[in-house]
Design a protein around this nucleic acid. Structure first.
Lengths: 285, 285
DNA sequence: GTGAAAGCGCTAACAG
DNA sequence: CTGTTAGCGCTTTCAC
């Protein structure tokens, strides 16, 4: 029942492996009778093709590679769950499998993971998530002329295929909402790595303030890891400023939650609500 | 530079493919001189083994399969990000790759995904996440005698390998905390599918109430999808009860967030805090 | 319509 | 120590 090969079907039927292969593949140069026989026998014997063998012969794996950033050996942005659901779902619809690796961003391990996918011919193409300034992964893939697309823009080659959200516009909307709510001291929790999205968002932040005649004070842009603790630490630092902000825009849900936690401790619940609202940034996309 | 095979190295050096293979694999039946030569040439030519070919020949893929539940084509529990980071990290350490598929739980698609992994010999073993009562996936894997472990216990065979958290104890702690805080009307937001974890948690819930002489009123256990909207809807229903609860235990972060949202609308912020605290359930594990 | 033969790139048993 | 031989299971010319 479980390890049936083309050969087994062929022998049982007294035909050649080639014929079985062709019948199963749906080629039309097989006699209708033979085809029926093969199809039925295959079903009876519980045939299922060995995908590895097929991949080797076809020189393609029908698999897409996805390397996701983790913030620690056991933590990663919850956002990736959604990403994975979206990508996985669509890939399945198109008949593709998904190969996933997890590594710390900007490390040698990360590049190693890409090398494995590309050089080991493990996948046919790659999705690069959360691009960074001077992204080594993008450079690597360009160097190898390997098919890939990025989620996020890139500084390296503007001719590559990418998908992105308008973070500049998103943060501008957030900041304007805060301004409309009466805030004048608005801070920003940025990541500690040079992610591309941070550039655009900072631009939106500055433009929004500027457009309303507000200035960005010293210390209002804090760089921290994209974690709850990063948000917590960043918020603490903000609250110790001579002129602490009354609202803050965080880079992701986790930082926002950390920021809320820090602000609750300081008995400034107003802050927490504003911080939390930035969780919705991706809904503005 | 990029599609070098063992044969290319062999021809360049005038030795056999076998020798190259063995030298690279580190077998000790290769002359030190030859080995050096092979190693160096391989490096120079940028050799990297074709993993597919290796897998076919070795009849193992060094890959672990992971099928994660999604709650919709584009949504999935943020918890899976952490799961993925943990599994991915450890798998990499042990020299294993990760194959990930996403499907809706308890559907034909889901079983199809498992069939692909198992029958297509795409992976060497599988991790089943979030077991359910009478889990068809577990049954399938048992039927095929395929190596797997489950995250979550199972009703099907208690001799299989599993890892689990003590949800009964976790929820008991949560409920006792609520009782200690003065609550007497404590409700529970349960999933709408027969996940195993729900059984244990409900047991913990009932035991805790019972131990304090409290009874579970009609309608206090609400079944909803494990989503923010599920939590929202469930909470709304709870708030419409003749005797609405003053605290609620949610099944996951998303339901808790939805519950908070529903309770805020009803101007019962006290509820939201209690609901939120259940986000920490997994920290009690 | 069907089969024989070749080969994807690698590993392993077996001689020598 | 090294090479020859024989596959892994599948697809794909190319004859017949």
């Amino acid at each position: 029942m479980s390890n049936v090969r083309l050969r087994d079907i062929a022998e049982k039927l007294g035909v050649s492996v080639t014929t079985v292969s062709r019948a199963l593949a749906g080629y039309n140069d097989v006699a209708p009778g033979t085809r029926q026989l093969v199809l039925q026998t295959a079903r009876e014997m519980g045939y299922y093709p060995n995908l590895t063998a097929r991949h080797l012969q076809r020189r393609r794996t029908d698999t897409i590679g996805l390397v996701v950033d983790v913030t620690g050996p056991r933590f990663s942005d919850p956002l990736f769950s959604e990403l994975l659901a979206g990508v996985g779902n669509q890939a399945a619809r198109e008949g593709f499998d998904l190969f996933v690796a997890t590594t710390l961003p900007n490390t040698e391990d990360e590049l190693q993971a890409y090398r494995r996918l590309v050089r080991g011919r493990r996948v046919d193409g790659i999705i690069v998530v959360r691009t960074r300034v001077a992204d080594r992964r993008v450079q690597f893939l360009l160097d190898h002329q390997f098919p890939f697309i990025t989620f996020g823009r890139s500084t390296l080659a503007d001719h590559l295929s990418w998908v992105d959200v308008d973070g500049e516009q998103g943060v501008r909307l957030v900041v304007e909402r805060l301004i409309a709510a009466g805030h004048r001291h608005i801070a920003m929790l940025q990541p500690d790595l040079p992610f591309m999205f941070a550039l655009f968002r900072e631009r939106g932040y500055r433009h929004a303030l500027q457009a309303h005649g507000l200035t960005v004070e010293q210390g209002w842009i804090v760089h921290q890891p994209l974690t709850e603790d990063g948000g917590y630490q960043g918020m603490r630092r903000l609250l110790q400023l001579p002129v602490p902000p009354t609202a803050v825009v965080a880079s992701n849900d986790q930082m926002a939650i950390g920021a809320i936690r820090a602000s609750e401790i300081c008995l400034l619940p107003a802050l927490s609500l504003e911080g939390y609202s930035t969780c919705e940034i991706r809904k503005y996309r």
